[in-house]
Design a protein around this nucleic acid. Structure first.
Length: 470
RNA sequence: GGCGGCAUAGCCAAGUGGUAAGGCCGAGGUCUGCAAAACCUCCAUCCGGCGGUUCAAAUCCGCCUGCCGCCUCCA
């Protein structure tokens, strides 16, 4: 275990606190994953990259981290999508879970240790509800079950408002006459029509409320108090507030010691929303930038701050990460041979750990990588340079970068595009040659392309088409 | 309406009492067959506005302005 005091901003206390896990060196961390009803957007990438790098860092300093990130595969949105594309909800969820995994792999986000899905935890959720009813924290009406917020005295502590204060902001929600209190929320929702997607329960066929899965999964996986619960700051209320209420009412003990929330990604200065037309998927984003550039863009601002996604910002990030990569590429990296005893415990590493220990200040950590790059480019002594080079690689891995990739770290989509552009350029030349009746050179280009497995077909009016023929 | 957050150079972005990290862009130079890279120099007397506290504030307090978020599904 490295000797460092980590401080974290706890949304619960609204203060930076010294991080002291319940049972060091073990850290149990749970972060809210996506609802799989569509391709994931860049907001999900921020969340995923944030928790990925935090987990990497905690492991680096010596903690044994158990990271859980759930997949919400039961939800009204999934059902709506299912109707829209006429594919059953279960399959819709599988399709977009796959898509999410593709994105995570592309982004270089580590797999969490556990990835529970709501559908796998129905018995646990049902037991959880039963327990809450027994303890008078929930009540069933018809075939619905609601959590009674009045039964939990600390309701509102995460949001930082009392129940009375919360009620004031409640004018916009149509009251549900079934509920005892307007803020009561569903634990189990009955189906409205017979053929609706649902699961059997003691209260009839229905579906679990959204907040329930996280509580039930945590209880099943960790039982005791979590060290860290994370998620986007849009989840603070009501999602996380309700999780706390359910779990603490159920276990009569603290649910999570620390609550960490990442800021939202904005596009055109506004939070992403399909209705605002500023929705960008991870797959789209990766057509415009390399995964490392997206990671750089995200890590270049503090995880709690809002972040505005712009083309300019992405370009700056791409150029920035490329400079780090080129530093390694252009300075003849020698392998870390045994005959040199490399020391990573140098001033750079020390400072790097120090800034990340202060509520995971990744922007400052990045600035240290650039200081290392400067040193590498200026250093004349071979051994000192070698140490700096390997330190740079070593530290950038903690942030999840792979700077020893080829220069651009480009993905297949971008390669495809470049490849197509090259062929189109060659074909442009060929057309010029043909127009000048320089068939010798035109044929050379065709030959060259054929050797590269690209077959060219001429069409009337100097038009053409090409395809790959292996 | 209730609650919370943010405002730092052309752009992005750290910095919570001691006198503005870092990145991108840009300018000039060294090097160079050309280009790239690298290196050197320059690029906020100032941190939304107005007051206050202090020997000292971007940093603390008050007020104002602007933007954003949550309160409805949301990473």
């Amino acid at each position: 275990m490295k000797d460092t005091k980590i401080t974290v901003y706890n949304s619960l206390s609204k203060e930076k606190e010294i991080f002291t896990p319940n049972n060091p060196p073990i850290i149990n961390i749970y972060t809210c994953g996506p609802t799989v009803y569509d391709h994931s957007h860049i907001g999900h990438s921020r969340s995923a990259i944030t928790w990925d790098f935090i987990v990497r860092f905690l492991r680096y300093v010596g903690y044994q981290v158990n990271w859980t990130r759930n997949i919400t595969d039961i939800d009204d949105k999934i059902i709506n999508k299912s109707k829209e594309i006429n594919i059953n909800p279960e399959k819709v969820a599988r399709i977009y879970t796959y898509s999410f995994h593709e994105d995570m792999i592309a982004l270089g986000v580590d797999w969490p240790d556990y990835e529970p899905r709501a559908t796998q935890y129905l018995p646990q959720m049902i037991d959880f509800i039963k327990g809450l009813i027994e303890k008078n924290h929930a009540y069933a009406i018809d075939s619905d079950v609601y959590f009674s917020i009045a039964s939990y005295s600390e309701y509102g502590k995460l949001k930082g408002q009392s129940i009375t204060e919360l009620e004031k902001g409640f004018g916009r929600i149509e009251p549900n006459p079934k509920k005892k209190h307007p803020l009561d929320f569903a634990l189990w929702k009955s189906i409205k029509t017979k053929d609706e997607y649902g699961f059997d329960s003691p209260w009839g066929k229905g579906r679990p409320g959204w907040h329930l899965e996280c509580s039930a999964m945590n209880y099943a996986l960790y039982e005791k108090c979590l060290d860290i619960h994370g998620g986007g700051d849009d989840l603070i209320f009501p999602h996380h507030e309700n999780e706390i209420a359910q779990s603490e009412a159920f276990t009569k003990s603290r649910f999570s010691k620390y609550w960490l929330h990442n800021g939202m990604i904005m596009v055109n200065g506004k939070k992403m929303a399909k209705s605002d037309g500023n929705f960008i998927t991870i797959k789209e984003a990766l057509k415009k930038s390399s995964p490392d550039a997206l990671r750089f863009f995200i890590l270049n601002s503090h995880y709690r701050m809002p972040l505005n996604y712009t083309e300019e910002g992405i370009t700056a990030a791409e150029n920035g990460i490329n400079r780090l990569k080129e530093t390694i590429l252009n300075t003849q990296l020698e392998p870390n041979n045994n005959y040199i005893n490399l020391n990573f415990e140098n001033e750079f590493t020390k400072e790097f750990i120090e800034v990340l220990s202060d509520d995971f200040n990744s922007p400052q950590a990045l600035s240290i990588l650039f200081k290392l790059a400067d040193k590498i480019n200026l250093e004349k002594d071979r051994n000192t340079k070698l140490e700096a080079q390997h330190t740079l690689i070593h530290l950038s891995k903690i942030l999840g970068f792979n700077i020893t990739n080829d220069i651009t770290g480009i993905n297949e989509t971008i390669k495809d595009r470049i490849f197509s552009n090259m062929i189109e350029s060659l074909m442009g030349w060929r057309t010029d040659f043909k127009s000048n009746k320089d068939y010798k050179n035109a044929d050379k280009i065709r030959e060259l392309l054929t050797q590269c497995k690209v077959e060219v077909k001429d069409l009337p009016n100097n038009d053409y088409k090409w395809h790959i023929k292996l």
